[in-house]
C-alpha cells in the first residue's frame, strides 16, 4: 500500500460506496476509517450520524487536507499502525476499497476485528464478468474502469473476488452480518442475494463483519 497511487485510486472511488458503508454504521458509534483519504466518510459520519469518527491515511497530502478541514486524521499505514490501538477501541473499523492494496490483507482484517467490534470492508470484485472475459478473450491482465492500471504499476496487489472473500471470512471465523454487491456507481444490484450472480455482476462487494 504505497503512497500516492493508492490514494488516487481511493479518492477517485471514495464517494461511490460512501453511502453504502455509512448505511451499515449505527448513529453515535465510534468509527475508525483506514485509508480515509481526505476524510469524506468521517466527515459524513460526524455530520449525519454524530459518530466519533477518526481516520488513518498513508498519503501525507491527503492527511494535511483532512486536518486542515478540521477532521481527526493521522498519518499511518494500515499494515503497521493498527497494532497500536487497544482491543475494542471502536464500534466499527472501516476499510473502503483498500483491502486489495494492503500488503497483508489477512492480518489487517484480523487487526480490524481486534480493535473494532465490527468491520466494514469494501473492495472491487475481481470476479466481475468483464474482468473474466478480458482475461479469457485476450489472455492479458484485465483493464476496466475499476481495474484501470497496468499490472506492473497497479497499487492493487491483492485482488480478490466476492467468493474469495466469503471463503476467507469462513477460514478466519468471521460472521458476515450483511453483505451486498454493487455496481461501480454504488447502486445495489438485484442479484445481491445470490452469491454466484453477485460474483459475476457485482463490481464491488461491501461486507459488514464481526467476530464469531
Amino acid at each position: 500500500m504505497s503512497g500516492h497511487d493508492h490514494v488516487r485510486f481511493l479518492t477517485k472511488n471514495m464517494r461511490v460506496d460512501l453511502a453504502l458503508i455509512a448505511g451499515m454504521i449505527a448513529p453515535g458509534s465510534r468509527v475508525l476509517d483506514i485509508g480515509c483519504g481526505d476524510g469524506s466518510l468521517i466527515d459524513h459520519l460526524f455530520q449525519t450520524k454524530a459518530c466519533d469518527a477518526r481516520g488513518i491515511e498513508i498519503d501525507m497530502a491527503e492527511v494535511t487536507q483532512a486536518v486542515a478541514y478540521g477532521l481527526p486524521v493521522m498519518h499511518g499505514d494500515a499494515d503497521v499502525d493498527l497494532a497500536h490501538y487497544p482491543d475494542n477501541a471502536f464500534d466499527y473499523v472501516v476499510l473502503s476499497r483498500a483491502l486489495q492494496a494492503v500488503e497483508r490483507p489477512r492480518e489487517v482484517l484480523a487487526q480490524m476485528l481486534r480493535i473494532g467490534t465490527r468491520a466494514v470492508v469494501s473492495f472491487p470484485n475481481f470476479g466481475h464478468w468483464l474482468v473474466r472475459w478480458q482475461l479469457l478473450a485476450t489472455g492479458r491482465m484485465p483493464m476496466t474502469a475499476t481495474w484501470d492500471r497496468p499490472w506492473h504499476e497497479t497499487p492493487n496487489i491483492h485482488p480478490c473476488t466476492i467468493r474469495d472473500f466469503f471463503i476467507l471470512c469462513e477460514e478466519e471465523g468471521y460472521v458476515v452480518e450483511q453483505w451486498l454487491a454493487a455496481d461501480d456507481g454504488g447502486r445495489r444490484t438485484p442479484w445481491r442475494r445470490f452469491l454466484n450472480l453477485a460474483n459475476i455482476f457485482g463490481e464491488q462487494g461491501v461486507f459488514l463483519l464481526r467476530r464469531r
Binding site: 492527511v63 486536518v67 498519518h75 490501538y85 477501541a89
Partner: peptide
Amino acid sequence: ARALNRAGANVSFV
C-alpha cells in the same frame, strides 16, 4: 501519536 492511539485518544498527526 502511537502512544495516544494505545490510550484511545483522539489524535491527528501530520
